[in-house]
Design a protein around this nucleic acid. Structure first.
Lengths: 214, 214
DNA sequence: CTGGGCTGACTGACTGTTCAGTCTATGAGC
DNA sequence: GCTCATAGACTGAACAGTCAGTCAGCCCAG
Protein backbone atom coordinates (compact mmCIF):
# COMPACT_ATOMS: atom_id res chain seq x y z
CA UNK A 1 0.00 0.00 0.00
CA UNK A 2 2.98 2.30 -0.40
CA UNK A 3 1.53 3.42 -3.67
CA UNK A 4 -1.92 4.81 -4.00
CA UNK A 5 -4.26 2.82 -6.14
CA UNK A 6 -4.56 4.27 -9.61
CA UNK A 7 -8.20 4.92 -9.09
CA UNK A 8 -7.47 7.01 -6.02
CA UNK A 9 -5.00 9.09 -7.99
CA UNK A 10 -7.54 9.65 -10.73
CA UNK A 11 -10.12 10.56 -8.15
CA UNK A 12 -7.81 13.10 -6.54
CA UNK A 13 -7.04 14.68 -9.88
CA UNK A 14 -10.72 14.90 -10.65
CA UNK A 15 -11.41 16.56 -7.35
CA UNK A 16 -8.73 19.16 -7.83
CA UNK A 17 -9.84 19.72 -11.38
CA UNK A 18 -13.34 20.37 -10.18
CA UNK A 19 -12.20 22.65 -7.38
CA UNK A 20 -10.14 24.70 -9.79
CA UNK A 21 -13.01 24.93 -12.24
CA UNK A 22 -15.39 25.92 -9.50
CA UNK A 23 -13.02 28.59 -8.19
CA UNK A 24 -12.67 30.01 -11.66
CA UNK A 25 -16.39 30.05 -12.19
CA UNK A 26 -17.03 31.71 -8.85
CA UNK A 27 -14.53 34.38 -9.80
CA UNK A 28 -16.26 34.92 -13.13
CA UNK A 29 -19.93 34.76 -12.25
CA UNK A 30 -20.02 34.93 -8.51
CA UNK A 31 -20.76 32.37 -5.87
CA UNK A 32 -24.51 32.48 -6.21
CA UNK A 33 -24.52 32.19 -9.98
CA UNK A 34 -22.27 29.19 -10.22
CA UNK A 35 -24.20 26.06 -11.16
CA UNK A 36 -22.90 22.60 -10.67
CA UNK A 37 -23.74 21.91 -14.27
CA UNK A 38 -21.29 24.68 -15.25
CA UNK A 39 -18.57 23.07 -13.23
CA UNK A 40 -19.41 19.72 -14.74
CA UNK A 41 -19.30 21.12 -18.25
CA UNK A 42 -15.93 22.72 -17.65
CA UNK A 43 -14.32 19.48 -16.55
CA UNK A 44 -16.16 17.48 -19.17
CA UNK A 45 -18.31 15.43 -16.89
CA UNK A 46 -21.92 15.06 -15.89
CA UNK A 47 -23.46 17.07 -13.06
CA UNK A 48 -24.10 13.80 -11.30
CA UNK A 49 -20.39 13.17 -11.08
CA UNK A 50 -19.77 16.43 -9.33
CA UNK A 51 -22.31 15.47 -6.71
CA UNK A 52 -20.74 12.06 -6.60
CA UNK A 53 -17.49 13.66 -5.47
CA UNK A 54 -18.71 16.45 -3.25
CA UNK A 55 -22.12 15.30 -2.16
CA UNK A 56 -23.48 18.78 -2.18
CA UNK A 57 -23.23 21.95 -4.17
CA UNK A 58 -22.46 23.89 -1.05
CA UNK A 59 -19.58 21.64 -0.10
CA UNK A 60 -18.07 22.04 -3.53
CA UNK A 61 -18.27 25.81 -3.58
CA UNK A 62 -17.08 26.23 -0.05
CA UNK A 63 -14.09 23.99 -0.64
CA UNK A 64 -13.38 25.84 -3.85
CA UNK A 65 -13.18 29.06 -1.92
CA UNK A 66 -10.72 27.56 0.52
CA UNK A 67 -8.80 26.01 -2.33
CA UNK A 68 -8.21 29.26 -4.15
CA UNK A 69 -7.35 31.09 -0.98
CA UNK A 70 -4.69 28.56 -0.16
CA UNK A 71 -3.38 28.71 -3.69
CA UNK A 72 -2.99 32.44 -3.31
CA UNK A 73 -1.09 32.26 -0.06
CA UNK A 74 1.15 29.51 -1.33
CA UNK A 75 2.08 31.66 -4.26
CA UNK A 76 2.87 34.52 -1.91
CA UNK A 77 5.02 32.21 0.19
CA UNK A 78 7.03 31.13 -2.81
CA UNK A 79 7.55 34.64 -4.05
CA UNK A 80 8.80 35.74 -0.66
CA UNK A 81 11.13 32.78 -0.41
CA UNK A 82 12.90 33.87 -3.56
CA UNK A 83 13.19 37.51 -2.51
CA UNK A 84 15.59 38.42 0.26
CA UNK A 85 15.45 42.21 0.63
CA UNK A 86 12.82 43.79 2.86
CA UNK A 87 11.68 46.51 0.51
CA UNK A 88 11.51 44.22 -2.48
CA UNK A 89 9.51 41.79 -0.42
CA UNK A 90 7.01 44.41 0.58
CA UNK A 91 6.77 45.53 -3.01
CA UNK A 92 5.99 41.96 -3.97
CA UNK A 93 3.17 41.74 -1.46
CA UNK A 94 1.68 45.03 -2.54
CA UNK A 95 1.96 44.08 -6.16
CA UNK A 96 0.27 40.78 -5.48
CA UNK A 97 -2.76 42.38 -3.92
CA UNK A 98 -3.12 45.72 -5.64
CA UNK A 99 -2.13 45.19 -9.24
CA UNK A 100 -4.45 43.32 -11.55
CA UNK A 101 -3.62 40.05 -13.23
CA UNK A 102 -0.19 39.53 -11.78
CA UNK A 103 0.10 36.45 -13.96
CA UNK A 104 -0.97 32.83 -14.19
CA UNK A 105 -3.33 32.47 -11.24
CA UNK A 106 -7.08 32.67 -11.33
CA UNK A 107 -8.31 35.49 -13.54
CA UNK A 108 -10.61 37.97 -11.88
CA UNK A 109 -9.79 36.40 -8.57
CA UNK A 110 -10.79 39.56 -6.77
CA UNK A 111 -14.41 38.69 -7.22
CA UNK A 112 -13.61 35.65 -5.22
CA UNK A 113 -12.59 37.66 -2.18
CA UNK A 114 -15.86 39.48 -2.10
CA UNK A 115 -17.77 36.25 -2.14
CA UNK A 116 -15.47 34.76 0.43
CA UNK A 117 -16.14 37.64 2.79
CA UNK A 118 -19.82 37.45 2.12
CA UNK A 119 -19.89 33.75 2.89
CA UNK A 120 -17.68 34.11 5.92
CA UNK A 121 -19.97 36.77 7.29
CA UNK A 122 -22.88 34.38 7.43
CA UNK A 123 -21.41 30.91 7.77
CA UNK A 124 -19.39 30.15 10.91
CA UNK A 125 -17.48 27.35 9.22
CA UNK A 126 -16.20 29.63 6.50
CA UNK A 127 -15.61 32.39 9.01
CA UNK A 128 -13.32 30.18 11.05
CA UNK A 129 -11.29 29.19 8.02
CA UNK A 130 -10.93 32.72 6.83
CA UNK A 131 -9.68 33.90 10.18
CA UNK A 132 -6.99 31.25 10.06
CA UNK A 133 -5.92 32.07 6.54
CA UNK A 134 -5.82 35.76 7.30
CA UNK A 135 -3.71 35.09 10.35
CA UNK A 136 -1.30 33.31 8.05
CA UNK A 137 -1.22 36.35 5.81
CA UNK A 138 -0.46 38.67 8.71
CA UNK A 139 2.20 36.33 9.99
CA UNK A 140 3.87 36.45 6.61
CA UNK A 141 3.95 40.22 6.76
CA UNK A 142 5.19 40.24 10.34
CA UNK A 143 7.91 37.76 9.46
CA UNK A 144 9.06 39.91 6.59
CA UNK A 145 9.38 42.82 8.99
CA UNK A 146 11.19 40.76 11.61
CA UNK A 147 13.63 39.54 8.99
CA UNK A 148 14.21 43.13 8.01
CA UNK A 149 14.93 44.06 11.59
CA UNK A 150 17.20 41.09 12.02
CA UNK A 151 19.17 42.02 8.92
CA UNK A 152 19.37 45.55 10.20
CA UNK A 153 17.57 47.00 7.25
CA UNK A 154 15.30 48.87 9.63
CA UNK A 155 15.17 49.66 13.33
CA UNK A 156 13.08 47.68 15.78
CA UNK A 157 9.32 48.11 15.48
CA UNK A 158 6.23 46.21 16.53
CA UNK A 159 5.95 43.77 13.65
CA UNK A 160 2.56 42.39 14.63
CA UNK A 161 0.96 45.77 14.91
CA UNK A 162 2.34 46.78 11.55
CA UNK A 163 1.07 43.57 10.01
CA UNK A 164 -2.48 44.19 11.15
CA UNK A 165 -2.54 47.73 9.84
CA UNK A 166 -0.75 46.93 6.60
CA UNK A 167 -2.99 43.97 5.86
CA UNK A 168 -6.07 46.10 6.40
CA UNK A 169 -4.73 48.86 4.20
CA UNK A 170 -3.97 46.38 1.43
CA UNK A 171 -7.46 44.92 1.65
CA UNK A 172 -9.00 48.35 1.40
CA UNK A 173 -6.85 49.39 -1.51
CA UNK A 174 -7.42 46.18 -3.38
CA UNK A 175 -11.15 46.75 -3.16
CA UNK A 176 -10.83 50.09 -4.89
CA UNK A 177 -8.59 48.67 -7.55
CA UNK A 178 -10.79 45.67 -8.09
CA UNK A 179 -13.82 47.90 -8.50
CA UNK A 180 -11.89 50.10 -10.88
CA UNK A 181 -12.33 53.28 -8.93
CA UNK A 182 -10.84 55.90 -11.23
CA UNK A 183 -9.46 57.81 -8.26
CA UNK A 184 -7.55 54.82 -6.99
CA UNK A 185 -5.73 53.25 -9.91
CA UNK A 186 -3.25 50.43 -9.28
CA UNK A 187 -0.29 52.77 -9.45
CA UNK A 188 -1.68 55.04 -6.79
CA UNK A 189 -2.68 52.18 -4.55
CA UNK A 190 0.83 50.87 -4.88
CA UNK A 191 2.31 54.20 -3.90
CA UNK A 192 0.03 54.66 -0.92
CA UNK A 193 0.78 51.23 0.45
CA UNK A 194 4.52 51.56 0.04
CA UNK A 195 4.59 55.02 1.47
CA UNK A 196 2.72 53.81 4.51
CA UNK A 197 5.21 51.01 4.97
CA UNK A 198 8.16 53.36 4.51
CA UNK A 199 6.83 55.85 7.02
CA UNK A 200 5.83 53.30 9.61
CA UNK A 201 8.91 51.13 9.37
CA UNK A 202 11.30 53.97 8.69
CA UNK A 203 12.98 53.34 5.37
CA UNK A 204 13.36 55.47 2.29
CA UNK A 205 11.16 54.77 -0.62
CA UNK A 206 10.23 56.62 -3.74
CA UNK A 207 8.09 55.36 -6.57
CA UNK A 208 10.38 53.82 -9.16
CA UNK A 209 9.51 55.27 -12.54
CA UNK A 210 7.42 52.49 -13.97
CA UNK A 211 6.01 53.21 -17.34
CA UNK A 212 2.37 54.05 -16.87
CA UNK A 213 0.20 51.88 -19.04
CA UNK A 214 -0.58 52.94 -22.59
CA UNK B 1 -50.42 70.09 -8.94
CA UNK B 2 -48.50 71.68 -6.10
CA UNK B 3 -49.47 68.77 -3.88
CA UNK B 4 -48.87 65.22 -4.78
CA UNK B 5 -51.95 63.11 -5.12
CA UNK B 6 -52.58 60.99 -2.03
CA UNK B 7 -52.15 57.85 -4.01
CA UNK B 8 -48.74 58.96 -5.11
CA UNK B 9 -47.75 59.61 -1.52
CA UNK B 10 -48.92 56.19 -0.48
CA UNK B 11 -47.06 54.69 -3.38
CA UNK B 12 -43.85 56.45 -2.39
CA UNK B 13 -44.15 55.28 1.17
CA UNK B 14 -44.70 51.76 -0.01
CA UNK B 15 -41.62 51.94 -2.17
CA UNK B 16 -39.41 53.16 0.62
CA UNK B 17 -40.87 50.63 2.98
CA UNK B 18 -40.01 47.89 0.53
CA UNK B 19 -36.53 49.22 -0.07
CA UNK B 20 -35.85 49.36 3.65
CA UNK B 21 -37.17 45.85 4.14
CA UNK B 22 -35.11 44.57 1.23
CA UNK B 23 -31.97 46.24 2.55
CA UNK B 24 -32.51 44.69 5.93
CA UNK B 25 -33.07 41.27 4.44
CA UNK B 26 -30.00 41.51 2.27
CA UNK B 27 -28.00 42.39 5.35
CA UNK B 28 -29.40 39.39 7.20
CA UNK B 29 -29.40 36.65 4.61
CA UNK B 30 -27.34 38.00 1.78
CA UNK B 31 -28.20 39.30 -1.63
CA UNK B 32 -28.60 35.92 -3.24
CA UNK B 33 -30.81 34.50 -0.54
CA UNK B 34 -33.28 37.33 -0.43
CA UNK B 35 -36.62 36.34 -1.96
CA UNK B 36 -39.18 38.78 -3.07
CA UNK B 37 -41.73 36.87 -1.03
CA UNK B 38 -39.64 37.66 2.07
CA UNK B 39 -39.73 41.33 1.29
CA UNK B 40 -43.44 41.13 0.65
CA UNK B 41 -44.06 39.37 3.94
CA UNK B 42 -42.07 41.95 5.84
CA UNK B 43 -44.11 44.85 4.52
CA UNK B 44 -47.36 42.91 4.76
CA UNK B 45 -48.11 42.70 1.08
CA UNK B 46 -48.25 40.11 -1.63
CA UNK B 47 -45.22 39.22 -3.72
CA UNK B 48 -47.14 40.42 -6.73
CA UNK B 49 -47.23 43.91 -5.29
CA UNK B 50 -43.49 44.04 -4.98
CA UNK B 51 -43.19 43.15 -8.62
CA UNK B 52 -45.88 45.70 -9.35
CA UNK B 53 -43.64 48.40 -7.90
CA UNK B 54 -40.23 47.31 -9.05
CA UNK B 55 -40.94 45.19 -12.07
CA UNK B 56 -38.06 42.92 -11.35
CA UNK B 57 -36.35 41.30 -8.43
CA UNK B 58 -33.04 42.59 -9.60
CA UNK B 59 -34.24 46.17 -9.76
CA UNK B 60 -35.55 45.94 -6.23
CA UNK B 61 -32.39 44.51 -4.75
CA UNK B 62 -30.10 46.82 -6.64
CA UNK B 63 -32.06 49.87 -5.58
CA UNK B 64 -32.11 48.58 -2.04
CA UNK B 65 -28.35 48.46 -2.08
CA UNK B 66 -28.15 52.04 -3.26
CA UNK B 67 -30.79 53.05 -0.75
CA UNK B 68 -28.93 51.73 2.25
CA UNK B 69 -25.65 53.14 1.06
CA UNK B 70 -27.18 56.57 0.78
CA UNK B 71 -28.78 56.20 4.17
CA UNK B 72 -25.38 55.45 5.63
CA UNK B 73 -23.70 58.45 4.09
CA UNK B 74 -26.53 60.75 5.07
CA UNK B 75 -26.15 59.64 8.63
CA UNK B 76 -22.43 60.33 8.46
CA UNK B 77 -23.14 63.76 7.05
CA UNK B 78 -25.46 64.60 9.90
CA UNK B 79 -23.09 63.38 12.55
CA UNK B 80 -20.29 65.48 11.10
CA UNK B 81 -22.49 68.53 10.90
CA UNK B 82 -23.06 68.38 14.64
CA UNK B 83 -19.41 67.87 15.49
CA UNK B 84 -17.00 70.75 15.02
CA UNK B 85 -13.59 69.54 16.22
CA UNK B 86 -11.29 67.69 13.83
CA UNK B 87 -10.28 64.85 16.11
CA UNK B 88 -13.81 64.24 17.35
CA UNK B 89 -14.96 64.18 13.77
CA UNK B 90 -12.41 61.61 12.79
CA UNK B 91 -13.35 59.57 15.81
CA UNK B 92 -16.94 59.69 14.68
CA UNK B 93 -16.05 58.37 11.24
CA UNK B 94 -13.93 55.59 12.61
CA UNK B 95 -16.58 54.66 15.09
CA UNK B 96 -19.17 54.59 12.36
CA UNK B 97 -17.24 52.10 10.28
CA UNK B 98 -15.32 49.99 12.75
CA UNK B 99 -17.55 49.55 15.77
CA UNK B 100 -20.51 47.23 15.53
CA UNK B 101 -24.09 48.33 15.90
CA UNK B 102 -23.51 52.00 16.35
CA UNK B 103 -27.23 52.35 16.90
CA UNK B 104 -30.50 52.58 15.07
CA UNK B 105 -29.49 51.93 11.48
CA UNK B 106 -29.64 48.66 9.67
CA UNK B 107 -28.49 45.78 11.84
CA UNK B 108 -25.71 43.68 10.43
CA UNK B 109 -25.27 46.21 7.70
CA UNK B 110 -21.73 45.06 7.10
CA UNK B 111 -23.00 42.07 5.23
CA UNK B 112 -24.49 44.58 2.89
CA UNK B 113 -21.13 46.01 1.94
CA UNK B 114 -19.80 42.65 0.95
CA UNK B 115 -22.73 42.08 -1.33
CA UNK B 116 -22.49 45.57 -2.69
CA UNK B 117 -18.87 45.01 -3.64
CA UNK B 118 -19.68 41.67 -5.12
CA UNK B 119 -22.44 43.13 -7.24
CA UNK B 120 -20.39 46.14 -8.23
CA UNK B 121 -17.60 43.86 -9.36
CA UNK B 122 -19.80 42.22 -11.94
CA UNK B 123 -22.46 44.76 -12.85
CA UNK B 124 -21.31 48.00 -14.46
CA UNK B 125 -24.43 49.87 -13.35
CA UNK B 126 -23.79 49.11 -9.71
CA UNK B 127 -20.10 49.72 -10.17
CA UNK B 128 -20.71 53.23 -11.41
CA UNK B 129 -22.97 54.06 -8.50
CA UNK B 130 -20.56 52.71 -5.98
CA UNK B 131 -17.71 54.76 -7.37
CA UNK B 132 -19.80 57.88 -6.97
CA UNK B 133 -20.84 57.10 -3.44
CA UNK B 134 -17.31 56.25 -2.46
CA UNK B 135 -16.13 59.51 -3.92
CA UNK B 136 -18.64 61.22 -1.68
CA UNK B 137 -17.22 59.39 1.30
CA UNK B 138 -13.68 60.44 0.45
CA UNK B 139 -14.81 64.01 -0.09
CA UNK B 140 -16.30 64.01 3.35
CA UNK B 141 -13.02 62.89 4.84
CA UNK B 142 -11.05 65.41 2.81
CA UNK B 143 -13.39 68.19 3.86
CA UNK B 144 -12.95 67.29 7.50
CA UNK B 145 -9.22 67.57 7.05
CA UNK B 146 -9.46 70.86 5.18
CA UNK B 147 -11.67 72.27 7.91
CA UNK B 148 -9.07 71.18 10.42
CA UNK B 149 -6.36 72.96 8.47
CA UNK B 150 -8.49 76.03 8.12
CA UNK B 151 -9.15 76.16 11.86
CA UNK B 152 -5.44 75.68 12.43
CA UNK B 153 -5.90 72.46 14.31
CA UNK B 154 -3.26 70.89 12.11
CA UNK B 155 -0.68 72.03 9.59
CA UNK B 156 -1.26 71.91 5.87
CA UNK B 157 -1.35 68.44 4.33
CA UNK B 158 -2.65 66.85 1.15
CA UNK B 159 -6.26 66.26 2.18
CA UNK B 160 -7.19 64.22 -0.90
CA UNK B 161 -4.30 61.86 -0.55
CA UNK B 162 -5.06 61.33 3.10
CA UNK B 163 -8.70 60.68 2.31
CA UNK B 164 -7.87 57.91 -0.15
CA UNK B 165 -5.54 56.16 2.25
CA UNK B 166 -7.76 56.62 5.27
CA UNK B 167 -10.85 55.38 3.47
CA UNK B 168 -9.00 52.28 2.33
CA UNK B 169 -7.69 51.62 5.82
CA UNK B 170 -11.17 51.95 7.28
CA UNK B 171 -12.57 49.55 4.70
CA UNK B 172 -9.91 47.02 5.49
CA UNK B 173 -10.34 47.32 9.23
CA UNK B 174 -14.10 47.12 9.02
CA UNK B 175 -13.80 43.84 7.16
CA UNK B 176 -11.82 42.30 9.98
CA UNK B 177 -14.22 43.61 12.57
CA UNK B 178 -17.24 42.48 10.60
CA UNK B 179 -15.80 39.01 10.26
CA UNK B 180 -14.98 38.95 13.95
CA UNK B 181 -11.32 38.32 13.56
CA UNK B 182 -10.15 37.79 17.14
CA UNK B 183 -6.88 39.55 16.40
CA UNK B 184 -8.62 42.70 15.20
CA UNK B 185 -11.31 43.55 17.70
CA UNK B 186 -13.19 46.85 17.34
CA UNK B 187 -11.06 48.55 19.96
CA UNK B 188 -7.86 47.70 18.19
CA UNK B 189 -9.23 48.70 14.81
CA UNK B 190 -10.22 51.99 16.34
CA UNK B 191 -6.76 52.57 17.73
CA UNK B 192 -5.02 51.67 14.51
CA UNK B 193 -7.17 54.00 12.46
CA UNK B 194 -6.80 56.92 14.82
CA UNK B 195 -3.10 56.42 15.21
CA UNK B 196 -2.71 56.46 11.46
CA UNK B 197 -4.65 59.70 11.27
CA UNK B 198 -2.67 61.24 14.09
CA UNK B 199 0.65 60.32 12.55
CA UNK B 200 -0.25 61.38 9.04
CA UNK B 201 -1.98 64.61 9.94
CA UNK B 202 0.27 65.44 12.83
CA UNK B 203 -1.84 65.71 15.94
CA UNK B 204 -1.60 64.08 19.33
CA UNK B 205 -3.89 61.24 20.11
CA UNK B 206 -4.03 58.58 22.73
CA UNK B 207 -6.72 56.02 23.24
CA UNK B 208 -9.20 57.43 25.73
CA UNK B 209 -9.91 54.85 28.39
CA UNK B 210 -13.21 53.53 27.18
CA UNK B 211 -14.66 50.77 29.26
CA UNK B 212 -14.15 47.55 27.37
CA UNK B 213 -17.43 45.77 26.94
CA UNK B 214 -18.73 43.52 29.72
C1' DC C 1 -67.97 54.04 -13.49
C1' DT C 2 -63.19 54.45 -13.86
C1' DG C 3 -58.45 53.80 -12.48
C1' DG C 4 -55.06 52.28 -9.82
C1' DG C 5 -53.53 49.72 -5.80
C1' DC C 6 -53.65 45.23 -4.85
C1' DT C 7 -54.08 40.00 -4.70
C1' DG C 8 -54.60 34.74 -5.31
C1' DA C 9 -53.73 31.40 -8.14
C1' DC C 10 -51.08 29.85 -11.50
C1' DT C 11 -47.08 28.68 -14.56
C1' DG C 12 -42.86 27.97 -16.60
C1' DA C 13 -38.23 27.58 -16.05
C1' DC C 14 -34.51 26.21 -13.59
C1' DT C 15 -31.55 23.16 -11.07
C1' DG C 16 -29.83 20.31 -7.05
C1' DT C 17 -30.11 15.72 -6.10
C1' DT C 18 -31.41 10.72 -6.66
C1' DC C 19 -31.28 6.38 -8.74
C1' DA C 20 -30.92 2.51 -11.49
C1' DG C 21 -27.93 0.92 -14.14
C1' DT C 22 -23.59 1.02 -17.74
C1' DC C 23 -18.87 0.56 -18.58
C1' DT C 24 -14.11 -0.60 -17.46
C1' DA C 25 -10.25 -2.26 -15.02
C1' DT C 26 -8.65 -5.38 -11.79
C1' DG C 27 -7.69 -9.61 -9.75
C1' DA C 28 -8.90 -14.23 -7.95
C1' DG C 29 -9.75 -18.84 -9.24
C1' DC C 30 -9.37 -22.41 -12.41
C1' DG D 1 -4.59 -17.53 -20.41
C1' DC D 2 -9.36 -17.41 -19.82
C1' DT D 3 -13.56 -16.43 -17.20
C1' DC D 4 -16.22 -14.20 -14.12
C1' DA D 5 -17.24 -11.40 -10.09
C1' DT D 6 -16.51 -7.09 -7.94
C1' DA D 7 -15.82 -2.29 -7.27
C1' DG D 8 -15.82 2.04 -8.39
C1' DA D 9 -16.04 5.81 -11.83
C1' DC D 10 -19.51 7.54 -14.34
C1' DT D 11 -24.10 8.84 -16.65
C1' DG D 12 -29.05 9.78 -18.49
C1' DA D 13 -33.27 10.46 -17.09
C1' DA D 14 -36.43 11.58 -13.93
C1' DC D 15 -37.92 13.97 -9.64
C1' DA D 16 -39.05 17.52 -6.52
C1' DG D 17 -38.79 21.88 -4.80
C1' DT D 18 -38.33 26.66 -5.45
C1' DC D 19 -39.36 31.10 -7.22
C1' DA D 20 -39.75 35.12 -10.39
C1' DG D 21 -43.02 36.84 -12.92
C1' DT D 22 -48.03 36.83 -15.21
C1' DC D 23 -52.80 37.56 -15.35
C1' DA D 24 -57.54 38.14 -14.68
C1' DG D 25 -60.01 40.30 -11.81
C1' DC D 26 -61.36 42.40 -6.91
C1' DC D 27 -62.05 46.54 -4.15
C1' DC D 28 -62.58 51.19 -3.24
C1' DA D 29 -61.87 56.27 -3.53
C1' DG D 30 -63.00 59.96 -6.24
Amino acid sequence: MAIKADSAVVADQRRDQMLAAAAQLIAERGFADTRISDVAKRVGASPALVIYYFGTKDTLLTEALRFSEQTFYSMADELLASTPALVKRLETLVHLTCVPQTQGEIPGSWGLWFDLWSQAFRHPEVKKDRVELDQRWRSMIAQVVRDGIHHEEIATVDAEEFAVAFAALLDGLSIQVALEDPVVDPERAYRIAMRFAATTLGFDWKPSRRRSRS
